[in-house]
Structure formats: C-alpha cells, structure tokens
Amino acid sequence: MAELQFREALRDAMTEEMVRDENVFLMGEEVAEYDGAYKVSQGMLDQFGPKRVIDTPISENGFSGMGIGAAMMGLRPIVEFMTWNFTFVAFDQIISNAAKMRYMSGGQLKVPIVFRGGNGAAGQLAATHNNSTEAFYTNVPGLKVIAPSNPDDAKGLLKSAIRDDDPVLFMESEVMFGMKGEVSDEEDYLLPIGKARIAREGDDITLVAHSKSYWLAMEAAEELAKQGYEATVIDPRTLRPFDTEAVIDSVKQTNRLVIVDECSPYGGIASEVAFRIQSQCFDHLDAPIARVTAKDTPAPYAKNLIEAWMPTVDEVIDASKKALYVN
C-alpha cells in the first residue's frame, strides 16, 4: 500500500492505462502545458508527449464530440472537464451521441470513452459553479456513472472505466484532490464497476453516501456510535449501475435507511435509492427512509448560506436519529 493523494491516484490510473494501451489518450483544458487545472495530469505531457496529452480550447461541446468520434473509430479517449459544471455546454454530445450510439447503431458501434473531472459543490463558488451533476447523467440509459470517495477506489475504478467499452462518466471533487489515502499497489489494480463498498458495519441503521458525502456519513456514524447507535455505511461508488443488493442486504439487518446525497433533492440520487428500497424491501423497514441533500435552491455565494445549503454532519445525525426514533 502506498499513501497517495486523490489526484495522484487518478494520475497513476491514467498513466498505467496509457502505458498499457496506445489507443488511450487524454485531452482537456489545461491538461498538458499547465499540468492540469488541478494538477491531476501533472507530468503526463512530459511522459507521453503532445500527441497523447492534448490541450484543448474552451470548447467543451467540440472536444467532447471529437472524443466520441474518435472512440467510434476505436480510440479510447479520456476527456477531462475542468469541472462537471462546464459539461452543460457538452450535454448534447454526451447524451445524444455518447449514450445512444451503441443502441442506435444496433450494436455496430461502441463508444469507449471516459469523461472525468471535479463534480459537486466546492465552496463559495455560487450558482453556476456548484452543481452536483450526477442525477442529470444517471437519468440517461447508455451511460455509466462513477463517483468514488477515496484514492484507492479512484484508482481501481478509473482503470476499469478506461477499459470499459461503454461511455463512463467519472466524477471527482475539487475539494478532494488533495485528500490522501492508502492505495493498493497491486499490479493492474482493477475494481469492478457497479459494486458498492461496505465501509463500516453496524446493526442499527444503514447510511448510503457517495463521493464527498461519504465522509459526512462516516463522521455521523462515529458520532452516532458515541451515542450508542451503530451504523452500517455503504459507499455505492458507482451510481449507474447501482448496487441495490448491497443496500437491501444491509437494510434487512438494520431496518432503517438514510441516504446522503449532495444533489438537489428533486429527483436526486437519494430519490432513486429510496424508491428501490421501499419497493424491494418494504416489509423490512421500521421507519420512513430519510435523505439529506443540498437545499432546493441554486447554490448561494455567501459563506453562511452555502454552509446551510450543503448537507452537514449534523443533518445526517438528526435524520438518523429520527429514523431511529430517538432525540
């Protein structure tokens, strides 16, 4: 095991895959000469040269589509977005083309492409720059969506994503790039897409949370433990496909579920998970499923407002206690 920053784990994954397969290349804004807006691709231009590490203009629609076209020809592009906020400019390419090409061509074509970059709120960036985009994209059949919470998962899942023959959307977080964690040094470390990770086991309540929210859930679980309630924490890691079984198995034991999700509440990830659980193990639930999400407004700038807007540990604890019927 080596201790790596999140950004280093991502870089290692890309680098290993680029060494392994000539068809893999990286493109995006500032990925080459600037060493990456968030230094994820630092040094990769030196290692692979400008043919395979490509700076693009600020043309998300254009270079996303170009990546998809290249993938249709058998290349395996990794397209970095400075953040997922800017993918709205490329929405059409991702949804109309990447997601649907295999289907519309009756299986003649595949689009083995990875779109990746920081997702979700990252401080006082206001409404245009604080979007949690996962629910928009999980809504689209044909796409896979991954949102890891730690460097180890980031590495293993990004490598799998690059090898996947379908378009994979890989969502990181600007505020987690510097986070350190142990990363497997297994050669060719691949994690399966669509498998949740049980991060903590407890009998009283199940918490489901991905990406940054996972850390809120873990903190809440520690606090709940001090108060005598043991939580199971499940990090789904992949949002589409979603490992429903893992949550069902846990809820069958705990009978209570809280979902933490930074998306807006209306039709967010939490809504989907709650639907599946209530429909598939209704009889095992001892309390209504609760969720903790961003507030139902655009993201405000002011410090106090954005803090109140984001899901918090306290809100997770409160929601859990409500589900546990304690105060």
């Binding site: 006082q124 960036l125 206001a126 409404a127 245009t128 405000p300 700038y301 002011a302 410090k303 407002l305």
Partner: peptide, 15 residues
C-alpha cells in the same frame, strides 16, 4: 457575501 451586496450576497465576484 453580505446582505447589502449588489446581489444580496448570492452572486459573489463572478456574478
């Protein structure tokens, strides 16, 4: 990010 700001603290520098 204060209430007397031009956008009541909602927009910040970019807005």
């Amino acid at each position: 990010g204060k209430i007397d700001g031009s956008s009541r603290g909602k927009g910040g520098s970019m807005h």
